[in-house]
């Protein structure tokens, strides 16, 4: 089975390590993926704020292209939470509201496209746990993440409100995956609490404390690393640590990686292929550290 891959703008830009690690770890698992040809930005929450119908129309073009590219079993994998949400939401609205359905079909027609509602939008976590399965994954682990304590951060938008693949309040798929890879997962209640999203860039006075709370709690619970499943979450939690330290007058440092980077490491993929060199707060596996924990 081949999956179509929808990168979204973020995975081609500042957060390309997510793309690199998704591609490399899926390759290591022999899962075939193919990029959606000529995809466009899904519209995201910011577009939704300006014109919701247009955001549905933009997302629908991607769905229509997916159907065209893989007519038999179009499954569209979207690793970015924002994209995942918008694509799922669009499908929901097409089902639920006839006026949306009519307008969007008309708009697609004007561009000689059509969408037969066949696409299945999925997050890589969903595919890994529910399609590939932990048994298959654990049989390919070459370097177990022993001794590593991971705080799994799902963010808000992959489990709320349209996703059905995990619990909305206490999701477990990433924890399950991490334990399969040999890591320990810390129990923390902030798994799905919002990191501030784009407010970090627009209103840091508000965004910084929101992300700070998450990291502080992860450290308190003894995590060595935070694993994320969304480019914006990763960016907020990693790139603003200096700012948090300044604002809260304490040195705060903890690596924040993509869950696919940890997956890749466990599968024995070379660090460079996983974009590990793009991290601002470097991360190394406990084994590679020779037992000596480097901790701030």
């Amino acid at each position: 089975m081949k999956y179509l891959y929808y990168p979204g703008c973020s995975l081609k830009g500042t957060n390309r390590a997510y793309e690199e690690s998704v591609l490399a770890s899926f390759r290591a698992l022999d899962i075939e993926i193919e990029e959606l040809e000529d995809w466009n930005c899904c519209g995201a929450t910011a577009y939704m704020a300006v014109d919701e119908m247009k955001s549905f129309a933009l997302a629908a073009r991607n769905l229509a292209l997916a159907e065209r590219q893989a007519p038999d079993h179009p499954t569209l994998m979207a690793p970015c939470s924002g994209c995942y949400l918008v694509l799922s939401k669009t499908q929901h609205y097409l089902e639920e509201y006839s006026e949306v359905s009519r307008t969007i079909d008309g708009a697609l027609q004007a561009a000689r496209l059509s969408y037969a509602r066949q696409v299945h939008v999925r997050h890589p976590l969903d595919i890994l746990i529910h399609e590939i399965g932990v048994q298959q994954i654990s049989s390919k682990v070459r370097q177990p993440l022993r001794g590593l304590k991971v705080a799994c951060y799902y963010g808000c938008q992959i489990v709320r409100p349209y996703a059905a693949f995990d619990d909305q309040v206490n999701p477990k798929t990433m924890d399950h995956l991490m334990r399969t890879l040999g890591a320990e997962t810390v129990d923390w209640p902030l798994k799905t609490r919002c990191c501030g999203g784009s407010l970090m860039g627009t209103l840091p006075e508000v965004g910084v404390p929101l992300s700070y709370i998450l990291l502080k709690e992860a450290l308190k619970r003894g995590a060595d690393v935070v694993a994320t499943a969304c480019p914006l979450c990763q960016f907020n939690l990693e790139c603003y640590q200096d700012k948090m330290s300044r604002q809260f007058k304490e040195r705060l440092e903890i690596p924040v990686v993509y869950f696919t980077q940890l997956l890749g490491l466990a599968l024995g993929v070379p660090e460079r292929q996983l974009g590990m060199h793009r991290l601002l707060v470097p991360f190394t596996l406990p084994a590679a550290r020779g037992g000596a924990r480097v901790h701030a």
Partner: peptide
């Protein structure tokens, strides 16, 4: 993209 967005405006 242009065609799609224009069509939404028209609708």
């Amino acid at each position: 993209i242009d065609q799609i967005l224009r069509a939404v405006d028209a609708a």
